[in-house]
C-alpha cells in the first residue's frame, strides 16, 4: 500500500487492460461512430470525472508523448489540473498547455480552436455515449435501433423542437451522423464545435467509463450535424468579441464580474487566447 510511483505500471493500467482497451479502440476506428462495449475499470477518480477518457488516454500514451488536458476549453480548470497531474505521476510523460505541441489531448466539453493535425489524438470524456438515450432509456432497444439504422425517432425529436420553439433546441451534445451511417453523440461539447469534427485530420477517440463504451472517428471522416434543409444547422456562439485577445470567431465564456451582474466575454480556449495575446 505504499504510494511510490514504482508501484504503478506505465500510465497506471496494467498491460492486459491496455490491450483490451486498444482492441476496443481498433474496432471503434474500423466502424466509425459505433459504440464498442469495453470492460471499463474502476479508476482512482470517480465516474463522471472522465474515467473513460483517462482509460483511453492511458491506452494510447507512449513515453514520448506530450499530453495536454483541458476541461471547458481551459488547462487551468480543477479537473484538467487533476487529470494532468495524474498522468505526470503515473506515466511521467511531458505535459503542455500548447495545443500545437501536444500529441495527445484529453478534453471535456470542448474542441480546441486551433485546427488539429494528423499526428494528434483528441480524446473526449463522454458521460452518456448513446445519442438516443433520452428518447429511449433502454440499451437493449437503442442497440437494435442503431443496428437497423432506425433513426426516425431522432428526426421526429428535432422536428418537434422546431414546431415548439422555432428551432432545434439542442445547444450541446448536438447529434451528428458519422460516415453516413451511425448517429453519434459528440459528447457534451457546445454545438459550436461540431463542424471541427468533420474531416478532422486528427484521430478522435471517445471514452465513456461508467457506461463501458468506446467509439471513434478516424481522420478525415465525414461528420455531419443533423438538420433539415429549411432549418440548417448553425454553429452558434455569443455574438461578442473576446475582451482579452479580441477574437471574434471563438467560443466565449460569459463571466459575471461584479454584484451588479456586469458581464465579460472571453475565449473559453485559454491556450488559444494566450497565444493571440502574446
Amino acid at each position: 500500500m505504499s504510494n511510490s510511483e514504482e508501484d504503478f505500471n506505465f500510465a497506471y493500467l496494467d498491460e492486459q487492460t491496455k490491450r483490451m482497451i486498444r482492441r476496443a479502440l481498433i474496432k471503434a476506428i474500423c466502424i466509425p461512430g459505433y459504440q464498442v462495449p469495453f470492460a471499463s475499470r474502476e479508476m482512482p477518480m470517480p465516474y463522471g470525472w472522465g474515467t473513460g477518457g483517462v482509460q483511453v488516454t492511458a491506452a494510447c500514451l507512449q513515453e514520448t508523448d506530450v499530453l495536454k488536458v483541458i476541461d471547458q476549453g481551459s488547462d487551468d480548470t480543477t479537473n484538467a489540473v487533476s487529470i494532468r497531474k495524474f498522468f505526470e505521476r503515473v506515466a511521467g510523460v511531458k505535459t503542455t498547455e500548447n495545443t500545437g505541441k501536444a500529441s495527445v489531448i484529453q478534453t471535456r466539453h470542448r474542441i480546441p480552436e486551433q485546427v488539429l493535425s494528423e499526428d494528434q489524438i483528441l480524446v473526449y470524456q463522454v458521460p452518456i455515449p448513446e445519442p438516443l438515450r433520452f428518447l429511449e432509456p433502454r440499451e437493449t432497444e437503442t442497440r437494435v435501433m442503431h443496428a437497423l439504422e432506425e433513426y426516425g425517432l431522432m428526426h421526429v425529436k428535432l422536428y418537434e423542437d422546431i414546431s415548439i420553439n422555432g428551432e432545434i433546441s439542442t445547444a450541446y451534445a448536438y447529434p451528428v451522423k458519422v460516415n453516413d451511417r451511425y448517429i453519434m453523440d459528440p459528447s457534451p461539447t457546445p454545438k459550436f464545435d461540431n463542424p471541427k469534427m468533420n474531416f478532422c485530420p486528427a484521430i478522435q477517440l471517445f471514452g465513456a467509463g461508467r457506461e463501458q463504451r468506446i467509439y471513434a472517428v478516424p481522420p478525415y471522416t465525414k461528420v455531419i450535424s443533423l438538420d433539415f434543409e429549411d432549418y440548417p444547422f448553425e454553429a452558434s456562439r455569443a455574438e461578442k468579441t473576446c475582451e482579452i485577445c479580441g477574437a471574434t470567431n471563438t467560443y466565449l465564456d460569459e463571466v459575471v464580474i461584479d454584484d451588479k451582474g456586469t458581464r465579460m466575454f472571453s475565449c473559453s480556449d485559454s491556450d488559444y487566447c494566450n497565444s493571440r495575446k502574446s
Binding site: 474502476e42 452558434s236 455569443a238 466565449l252
Partner: peptide, 23 residues
C-alpha cells in the same frame, strides 16, 4: 460507485454547455 460518480459529477464545471443553453 457508478451512481455516486454520475450524480455528483454535475458539480464539476459545466459552464461551456450552460453558455450554449444561455445563448
Amino acid at each position: 460507485i457508478q451512481a455516486t460518480g454520475f450524480v455528483e459529477h454535475i458539480k464539476l464545471p459545466h459552464y461551456v454547455d450552460f453558455q450554449a443553453e444561455l445563448e
